[in-house]
Computed example of a mutant assay.
Amino acid sequence: MMMVKAGLIPLLISYVIALVFTVMPMPALLEPWRPDWVSLVLIYWLMAIPHRVGVGTVLIVGLLTDILLGSTFGVYASALLLISYPVLRHYQRIRHYALVQQALVVAILIFFKRVIVYEIEHVLNDAVFSVPYLYPVVSSALIWPWVFLALRRYRRHNHIH
């Protein structure tokens, strides 16, 4: 029987929860403000345990997001890969920032992710830009401190190193 690496199941559960939150029904008024759950969870794990979560994980979760959202295959995966590099490159610095500073970094990363996805969709599918497309940048930054604290507690509780 194959041994499962310690902490793998809790990591997978966090990705599944992020994917569920991504498609979970919301009131029409709040829908444009839906935080970018997948990005938030990946950014946290990339900062917390970069030796366990890397570009392979980001690619797989990104492709699952593409499938789940019915987007052009590889769009979200590409955008997530592009924003994961600065996190992996500077995780030691970012993890020591105050939560407000981290929220600003998260907002910038998610802004770039949204721009990348829009540009690819515009070229491939003639997507049209509207300002509400950027609302998740604000909502994700506002919710980051709670996501960070919840995932940190989850990581410690499940002894994920």
Rank of each mutant, 00 (worst) to 15 (best):
L59C: 10
D126E: 15
Q92H: 10
V20G: 01
V16A: 10
V55W: 12
H161W: 15
K113D: 08
L8T: 14
L151K: 07
L30F: 06
L11G: 02
G74V: 06
P86E: 11
M24T: 12
P136M: 11
A48G: 03
W144F: 04
V137Q: 00
A28C: 02
A77P: 00
L29E: 09
R156A: 13
I116P: 03
L64I: 05
G54N: 00
Y133S: 11
H51E: 07
Y97F: 12
P145V: 04
A98D: 11
S84N: 06
D66A: 08
Q92Y: 11
V16D: 13
L99R: 04
T57V: 08
Y91T: 08
V123Q: 05
V20H: 11
V147C: 01
L8A: 13
L109G: 07
L64P: 00
S130E: 15
F73Q: 10
Y133M: 14
V75K: 06
A28P: 09
D66L: 04
I110Q: 03
A98V: 02
N125T: 11
W45S: 01
H90G: 08
M26G: 07
S130T: 15
V55T: 14
F112V: 02
I116E: 07
H159F: 14
S139G: 02
F112G: 00
A103D: 08
W146P: 04
H90K: 15
L69S: 05
Y76Q: 14
G56T: 02
H51L: 05
V106Y: 04
R153N: 14
I143H: 01
H157P: 00
T65R: 14
L149W: 15
A77W: 07
V138I: 12
N125F: 10
L149K: 15
V115Q: 07
L134M: 05
G7K: 02
Y85L: 10
A79W: 13
W33Y: 14
A79Y: 10
A141K: 00
A103S: 13
F129Y: 09
R95N: 08
L11C: 12
I94L: 15
E119L: 07
Y85I: 11
T72V: 15
R95C: 03
L109N: 01
M2V: 06
M47L: 06
V20C: 05
V87S: 02
I43L: 00
D126S: 15
Q102I: 14
L104A: 11
M2R: 13
Y118K: 07
L82M: 13
R156P: 10
W146C: 09
P10V: 13
F73T: 10
H51D: 11
P10K: 05
L11K: 14
